[in-house]
């Protein structure tokens, strides 16, 4: 087993993220997955947009593209189509991926291009100072919703299932090995794989909403996770937290897995094609 730190550009560390921000945990889990899959690091391209989560790509020793706000799936589409042997992974946030970049995300899903999108959902715009995002829960305080958010929020996984993503999963940033397992699973999936990671923002969300710091927020994530999910393995499992601790229902686990033709430009690759 390789030390995952060997995948970092260590001269760029420490990273810019705030103390207690779980994005670093997610990055580590991802690197574990890369290591598990023994991916050729020369052939791994990571594409990001703008935001805290998108900054992650600067720290990893792969081919990395830190693009524009919300457009990472589009950049990734060009990369993958032009060079299919690349493993292309998009790292995006909830604002980046679902607001400004929502259109790109759903169309990449619809095409079923063979890339993996990691959406780090911290329920707020962190980089810009804690404004409400499409994922901010109703009632939650943000710098642009001082009296509580009055807009309903997106369920990213349901959105992506609707958009036709052939692999959709949700994991918690507090579950490192499950994250790794799902990420490895998602990257191995042929076609568009979407993995939403419930991450935290202690600096803004935690502070504005009295959730606490990083440690508290990791626990809080479990309380956002209330739903029931389908099987990850053949054994199958379901998740549940007592109703008293579940303000919002969010299923975790692999929510969809489907074999369907993969988009590769003018032609498509059938699921059974090698």
């Amino acid at each position: 087993m390789t030390d995952v730190k060997s995948y970092l550009r260590d001269w760029t560390m420490p990273h810019v993220l705030c103390p207690g921000c779980a994005h670093g945990i997610v990055l580590r889990a991802f690197l574990e997955a890369v290591d598990q899959l023994q991916l050729d690091r020369d052939k791994l391209a990571m594409v990001a947009g703008i935001g805290c989560s998108s900054r992650l790509v600067g720290y990893v020793d792969f081919c990395t593209l830190h693009g524009t706000h919300g457009r990472a799936p589009a950049f990734a589409t060009g990369l993958k189509l032009a060079r299919p042997e690349l493993n292309v992974v998009v790292v995006t946030g909830d604002g980046d991926g679902l607001a400004i970049g929502g259109n790109h995300l759903i169309h990449a899903a619809r095409r079923n291009i063979d890339i993996t999108v990691l959406l780090l959902n911290n329920a707020i715009y962190g980089m810009t100072g804690g404004q409400a995002a499409p994922t901010t829960p109703e009632g939650a305080v943000a710098s642009t919703t001082p009296a509580g958010n009055t807009e309903p929020s997106f369920d990213a996984c349901k959105l992506l299932i609707g958009a036709g993503a052939s692999y959709v999963a949700r994991v918690l940033a507090a579950t490192p090995i499950e994250m790794t397992k799902v990420m490895a699973d998602g990257m191995s999936h042929r076609g568009f794989s979407f993995i939403e990671v419930l991450s935290d923002c202690p600096e803004y969300y935690g502070r504005y909403n009295n959730v606490g710091g990083g440690a508290e927020m990791l626990t809080w994530l479990a309380r956002r996770d209330a739903g029931v999910a389908g099987p990850l393995s053949s054994k199958g499992f379901v998740k549940h937290v007592p109703s008293s601790a579940t303000p919002a229902g969010m299923m975790t686990g692999v929510l969809k897995r489907e074999a369907r033709p993969v988009f590769a430009g003018v032609r498509r690759i059938e699921p059974d094609e090698s």
Binding site: A45, V47, C63, L65, G67, T68, R71, P73, A74, F75, A76, T77, G78, L79, K80, L81, A82, R83, L86, N103, H104, H107, G265
Partner: peptide, 19 residues
């Protein structure tokens, strides 16, 4: 590739160029 809009079109072009 026909993209979802012009923003995406040029993004894809940039991606392909980097490839």
């Amino acid at each position: 590739v026909q993209m979802e809009d012009e923003i995406a079109s040029l993004a894809a072009v940039i991606g392909a160029s980097l490839a």
